[in-house]
């Protein structure tokens, strides 16, 4: 049975990430969230509304992170939150990254823009259980150096996690020493054998087509590719219809889909 009652959770810290994104650390009063990397929650402010937000930290007992871009009614209102405030939480919802299909293999994480937020959950998980994964690489794309999420963490990902982190921006600015260009340019430079590598992709809708084309040219099998898709998840239980992609409900069957299972679903990636 499912009702729409939110659990009242505590915001334990608020950290600006960029000019438009904020990272909130949240604790539920009575339980760990119990999520998998890639799942999402519904965050609400009483009287204002709910917004689906993906979880940006690895599963753990000590609360969870949400990285919020302030672009809608609810997410704009979340700007007012301070440490010590309360929010409503429902979830976790959906299917995350199936870890048993990723463990024991090389991992290629491809994140465009805010897509790094849900994938940070997986990156942290890899850091915690590093020995369970073979080589790992993270490709990060952003509009500009200012728009990069979690850039202060890249060093730790590289050093503590032995993760090959590569970053590119669409438009550089003075002082930028990294790559300039689209994220697909980075993919061929990662020395991971496609047949023994699992790719996990999350980014703006326009990105998927090009990333998939590149991975296909490199002969990566479709069942080794996972895509996290954004839609307007509202109820979280496959009823309200808002997140539907053809016959699939993203809130239940996704948001993480194995590519071979949606390659023939016309609305999924175009």
């Amino acid at each position: 049975m499912f009702d729409f009652i939110p659990e009242i959770a505590n915001v334990t810290s608020v950290r600006p990430v960029t000019a438009t994104e904020t990272l909130y650390h949240i604790r539920l009063p009575n339980r760990p969230l119990g999520h998998l990397p890639g799942q999402f929650v519904q965050v609400s402010l009483p009287g204002i509304g709910e917004a689906p937000i993906s979880i940006a930290s690895a599963p753990g007992r000590d609360g969870f992170d949400l990285c919020v871009r302030h672009v809608g009614n609810v997410t704009e209102a979340l700007r007012r939150l301070r440490a010590g405030d309360c929010v409503g939480i429902r979830g976790p919802f959906g299917r995350g990254v199936p870890l048993d299909e990723v463990m024991g293999r090389n991992v290629l994480i491809i994140a465009g823009g805010l897509g790094l937020a849900p994938l940070r959950s997986l990156i942290q998980y890899i850091l915690y259980f590093r020995a369970k994964f073979k080589k790992a690489a993270v490709l990060v794309g952003a509009r500009s150096p200012d728009a990069l999420l979690f850039s202060k963490e890249y060093k730790a990902w590289r050093q503590d996690g032995d993760i090959d982190v590569r970053v590119t921006v669409d438009v550089a600015k003075a002082g930028w020493k990294g790559d300039v260009g689209v994220i697909t340019d980075l993919i061929p430079h990662v020395p991971l054998p496609p047949a023994d590598t699992v790719s996990i992709v999350c980014g703006p809708p326009v990105m998927y087509h090009y990333v998939l084309r590149t991975l296909s040219r490199l002969h990566q099998p479709q069942d080794h590719i996972f895509l996290s898709l954004e839609r307007r998840m509202k109820c979280g239980t496959g009823k309200c219809g808002h997140c539907q992609i053809n016959g699939l409900y993203v809130c239940r069957e996704g948001p993480v889909f194995r590519y071979d299972r949606i390659v023939h679903v016309p609305e999924a990636v175009s």
Partner: peptide, 21 residues
Amino acid sequence: RSWDSCLLKDFAAVAGNENFR
């Protein structure tokens, strides 16, 4: 809760000006 309609323009729209239908 109120009835909604998948025929309405904003039904599959998400924040940030993306509309999937």
